[in-house]
């Protein structure tokens, strides 16, 4: 399945958002996720099925003004 993660095209075997995050090595309490511009809270990641063409954002705390 072809998806876009943080602006980069990727191919994944993962069925859910949680699978994808494990596959890419994203782990940590501090991450925020969205699929196709909809927020996906941490407990929902295992139920968030991925579909071809999904646009996924995985964001992290960063410095800011």
């Amino acid at each position: 399945m072809n998806i876009i993660v943080n602006g980069e095209a990727l191919e994944t075997k993962g069925k859910t958002l949680l699978d994808l995050m494990a596959e890419l090595g994203f782990e940590g309490e501090w991450l925020a996720t969205a699929v196709n511009n909809q927020i996906v809270h941490k407990p929902e990641r295992s139920r968030q099925a991925l579909r071809n063409g999904d646009r996924i954002e995985i964001l992290s705390p960063m410095e800011g003004g």
């Binding site: 890419l24 994203f26 940590g28 501090w30 964001l59 992290s60 410095e63």
Partner: peptide, 12 residues
């Protein structure tokens, strides 16, 4: 702020 984290990154 919130920004894109590199895959596997721990910076955030």
């Amino acid at each position: 702020s919130l920004r894109r984290e590199t895959a596997g990154g721990k910076t955030g």
